[in-house]
């Protein structure tokens, strides 16, 4: 009885791990190419209104791990990015794209962002 219970639990655990790994590897599911453009566009607009000095964003996806970006974007905690006025008007789709850009090119991702 115990053996049967254990084997069933192992199968369930295996399936859960497999599913979570599969979903984790897919990332947020947005358009990371578009996200990169939108992210830079936010800073260009912000620089024009004097929100930041440089139109080139200071934060790069490779500055943090996937897990860290996940926490920031899922909690919508964009304080360290600055330019809050610009972030607050972004549609959810654009935020998802930017999230995908940061997540897919995080320091521990298969393709971390370079300075470009």
């Amino acid at each position: 009885m115990f053996k049967k219970y254990m084997s069933t639990s192992m199968v369930i655990l295996f399936l859960l791990v497999s599913f979570s790994m599969a979903f984790a590897s897919e990332g947020p599911g947005g358009n990371d190419r578009k996200g990169k453009y939108t992210y830079r566009k936010v800073y260009k607009a912000c620089a024009k209104t004097g929100g930041v000095e440089s139109a080139t964003p200071k934060i790069s996806p490779a500055d943090k791990t996937m897990g860290q970006w996940q926490e920031i974007f899922e909690n919508k905690n964009f304080d360290e990015f600055g330019c809050m006025d610009n972030w607050s008007v972004l549609p959810d789709k654009d935020i998802l794209d930017i999230y995908s850009y940061f997540y897919n090119h995080a320091s521990d991702s298969p393709s971390p962002a370079t300075c470009k």
């Binding site: 190419r33 990169k36 453009y37 090119h105 962002a113 470009k116």
Partner: peptide
Amino acid sequence: STGARSGEAFYMVKDVRESLKDVYY
């Protein structure tokens, strides 16, 4: 070299000059 900057260029064109239809990366 990776599709990152060319992808950005593609979306830039789509945003700035929507009338240019035949654009790819």
